[in-house]
Simulated scan of single mutants.
Amino acid sequence: MKTQVLNPFIPLQWQQPAAAAPETKAAEGFAGTLHKALGEVNQLQVNADEAAQKLAMGEAEDIHQVMIAMEQAKMAMQLTVQVRNKVVEAYQEVSRMQL
């Protein structure tokens, strides 16, 4: 069995293996994919908050895991903001087009 290496800075739904069935992606649509991606970004934020709280209360066993959780949340949020900026830019470009 072949193991897959996951990038900790990219949400899991964006790291799907190449063998994923294309009809499942088409079935859920853009809105479903967007909703799922935002849910994972939110979960990363919640995990980072919980890790920071545990660290502040002295319950965290490993400060490295806290920093990794915080960096994952930061990178996911930055990626989300950049995607949003590109979508808004594309919408503005289409709205300026003359028909």
Rank of each mutant, 00 (worst) to 15 (best):
T80S: 15
K54M: 05
K74S: 09
L6H: 06
K25F: 14
M77Q: 13
M67D: 12
N47V: 06
L79G: 09
A21T: 10
L55G: 01
L79T: 12
L55F: 00
D62N: 09
V81P: 01
I63P: 03
A90V: 00
V88R: 10
L55Q: 10
A26N: 05
V66I: 03
G58W: 13
R84Y: 15
P17F: 04
V87F: 11
I63M: 12
L55M: 09
Q45S: 12
V46S: 08
I68A: 11
A37G: 05
Q92C: 09
K86F: 12
Q92E: 14
V81W: 07
I10Q: 06
I63K: 11
K54P: 00
V94E: 10
N47Y: 00
V81Q: 11
E89M: 02
V88Y: 12
Q53C: 03
T80Q: 14
L44D: 10
V41Y: 05
L6S: 10
E28F: 04
A60E: 04
I10C: 03
A48P: 02
K36S: 09
A27H: 06
A48S: 06
L12P: 07
Q65P: 00
A26P: 01
F9C: 07
E50L: 15
A20E: 15
V94R: 10
Q92I: 08
Q65W: 00
V94L: 08
Q13H: 13
E23L: 10
P8W: 04
L12E: 12
A19L: 06
E89N: 06
A31L: 14
A73I: 03
I63Q: 13
M70V: 13
A51L: 03
F9I: 03
